[in-house]
Amino acid sequence: MRVIENPRLRAVLRYGIPFVLIPALVALSAVLFEGQRYLIISLGIAVLALLLFMTGFEKRNIGSRRMVITAIMTALAVFGRFIPLFKPITAICVMTAIYLGAEAGFLCGSLSVLISNIWFGQGPWTPFQMLGFGLIGLIAGYLSRVLMRSNVLLLLYGVVAGIAYSFIMDIWTVLWYAGGFDWGLYSAALLSALPFTALYAVSNVVFLLILRKPVGNKLNRVKIKYGV
């Protein structure tokens, strides 16, 4: 795994990519191309996510181990998406982010969407879903100290993530449908998505509750045993 040597460049990439470059790319895809170049845009986001992930690596021999573990957690999230109605994808991304770092969380979220959409259908929604889940993982990674210590805050994060995800996705729905932003349509979309929003939030809480201890212990163990 190649490591970016310059620490200043690494810092710029670490904060510039998630908060400036990726939102700009998504806005570009929605406004300029009206969502038509989703394949290229999602590709761009995936590449940026990988670059972000790579900035987190310090040593070479740790890189490939962390990469394999991230791939496994991503696969777990994809596998979980086949469960009807209740989706553990957010919970798994959050767990990955807390134990393996913010970058791994971002990668786990965005790539699991990309992969599972091979079965569930790729579309112009792919980059937005990738961004949504990626950011859920990334922010959880930045809050990892707090989330690891407090159970209540972790569950609260699950609820907030579920609601925020729904809000982000509805912005996309309105942009694609109306070609521009419209508050009436947005509130209508939010209202019609209410059952799904509730379902997201509930399933996040349930799966965080179930997975927190066992998955956390396992990841911790692998981290200590193999020095990931």
Binding site: V47, A71, I72, A75, L111, I115
Partner: peptide, 16 residues
């Protein structure tokens, strides 16, 4: 476009 991304993707698909 990116061999490393492809490796990660293929590993994740394989593990799925």
């Amino acid at each position: 476009f990116s061999p490393q991304l492809a490796l990660l993707l293929s590993m994740a698909i394989r593990y799925t």
